[in-house]
Design a protein around this nucleic acid. Structure first.
Lengths: 331, 331
DNA sequence: TTGAAAGCGCTAACAA
DNA sequence: TTGTTAGCGCTTTCAA
């Protein structure tokens, strides 16, 4: 049998309530008593049972984190931001991968709620009615990180993706390009669509008509970038600049261009999105829209702590600033 | 107040024991009764409380995962393997980052044990006496993933790193090189040392003397690779081939070489280690030792389930096979 | 096949 | 400042 608070109480000649107070740092304990209890805790090698504590206090000090795929650099970085802040507030992270599968997402939320998490940080490509229904009936607060709820009814932390796409495209247009291409990920991703909308708005404002042939829908991978360029190269009207929805796609784009004997940025300019560490791990280094992944995770977790503590929240839908870092893939 | 098993029992006109049986799929329930209970569970929107269940059953169906840094591609991939298998066995993952800080590592183990995890998958650069003491006194089984316990006393899943380093070096030596360099990470990492030992053994067996100037100790980053090459380039006797401890370092090495106007593999051959997806995201693509990160995680988790179920374990220290993939950074 | 009842280890009034 | 005593919501004998 394990050592319980009761064993400690007996050995220290106090009541379990006193032991509990010592463990929880309750000031209402005489220093002498506290010392005595602390010593016998040490002696017995007592380790508090957080599950029992959770049952009695209705707080588990763990938060659920639902991510599409932790092996993606993007979400891994977000998760790191979440965990660091969680730790700061004494929470632990119950992490799960959803693969953007809606059934799995719903199931995961329920599992975490059964496990009585104090809150959830949710990441996912598309928020649908089913999600919202779960979010709205959840007994624990939920915050979205780098995920868009079109209804704006769920607290969230994001950047302005449409504006990011707009600015990236404008950089290309300002450099004189009239034929910009956009390589996007799956259309299951709201964020993706937002970047595209920005891309389109930039064209409209510049009075440029966008050639639909210059849109490539891939799946966010390096290979998508390669395939996009291969497709573009067969066109009569080839794009002279390419905006890729992520850095990883951008690397594929750059390498495919180079494999064809062309140069970046001389022949074709390329701009990415995210500023993952990949951006400086290519030649030429990548001009890209900076998305502060770590910060989004950190701020989302911080926001969640406010809800968990029932603190006042001034703004439920946080938009973090973004910027463009110019490197060598654009002129 | 929340809906409990008791509410369901009352509504369904059965005892809580029967509800419990239904929830847990106990076959000793008359189909009619089961149906009735299931219906009222549905009606009331009852959600079992896993914390209470954990307290009563002494099982939480969650396993702790301690990783140095989830934002590292390497560990993220491992974590994915762990989570996938964990899910398969109905476990959830309590994940934490240790930053290889020994105090944090010990604290994390204790926190997870307090939370009554059923087992722990541990990843860390260096296993010391303090770790072993924790491992040995842990009430929950612990399995190491891609981490070396020199005493071999803790169950683990790894590849043969020494042999991997040996083979990588031999590939270079077989290509005629007499001046191979090794770019390693921090010396806090046992795995690193193992690769180095393999590197040295290959030299010895080939009757080559290793020039200490050709050893660079960095920190596992892309920049380490760059710095290493810069240092090497100032030497009188420059290396003609470079073995880097990880793929990320390799990319830095390759780019630094190219930045100096030299070519890979014509002027200098490069071989990496891990085969992360970075390996194909460079030009030239990287020859590298394949470390099956996902599988290591998956097998470690599978092994942990055996210990948690008190199954027979044939081999506690699993060595997974590795291989070398030849791409274009070597001739 | 079902129910009654005793915990699991702790927190949190409430009383002293 | 300390102790007593109900629970928290569930599992699990044991009996019927």
């Amino acid at each position: 049998m394990n050592i319980t608070i009761y064993d400690v109480a007996r050995e220290a000649n106090v009541s379990m309530a006193t032991v509990s107070r010592v463990i929880n740092g309750n000031p209402n304990v005489k220093p002498v008593t506290r010392k005595k209890v602390l010593r016998t805790i040490e002696e017995l090698g007592y380790r508090p049972n957080a599950v029992a504590r959770g049952l009695a206090s209705k707080k588990t000090t763990t938060v659920g984190v639902i991510t599409p795929d932790i092996s993606s650099m993007f979400f891994a970085e977000l998760a790191r931001g979440i965990d660091d802040i969680a730790n700061m507030y004494k929470y632990n992270i119950l992490l799960s991968n959803s693969d953007q599968n809606i059934d799995k997402e719903i199931k995961l939320i329920n599992t975490m709620l059964e496990k009585q998490v104090d809150g959830i940080v949710y990441m996912g490509g598309q928020i649908k009615e089913e999600h919202l229904q779960q979010f709205n009936t959840s007994p624990a607060p939920i915050v979205l990180a780098a995920s868009i709820d079109p209804s704006q009814s769920t607290p969230s932390v994001n950047i302005d993706f449409e504006q990011g796409g707009y600015e990236a495209t404008n950089l290309l247009i300002d450099n004189g390009h009239k034929h910009c291409a956009f390589v996007m990920g799956t259309n299951e991703a709201t964020i993706n669509e937002l970047k595209y909308q920005g891309f389109i708005r930039a064209h409209e404002e510049a009075g440029l008509t966008f050639n639909e042939d210059h849109l490539y829908r891939g799946d966010f991978t390096y290979n998508s970038g390669i395939e996009a360029v291969e497709k573009f190269s067969k066109l009569d009207q080839k794009p002279t600049a390419i905006f890729a929805a992520t850095d990883e796609i951008s690397l594929g784009v750059i390498h495919a261009i180079q494999d064809q004997g062309l140069s970046v940025p001389e022949d074709i300019e390329v701009i990415g999105f995210d500023n993952t560490k990949l951006a400086v791990m290519v030649r030429p280094t990548l001009t890209t829209v900076v998305q502060p992944m770590y910060d989004i995770g950190a701020v989302a977790m911080r926001l969640l702590t406010k809800y968990m503590n029932r603190e006042e929240v001034e703004e439920a839908n946080v938009i973090l600033p973004h910027q463009i870092i110019k490197r060598n893939s654009t002129k």
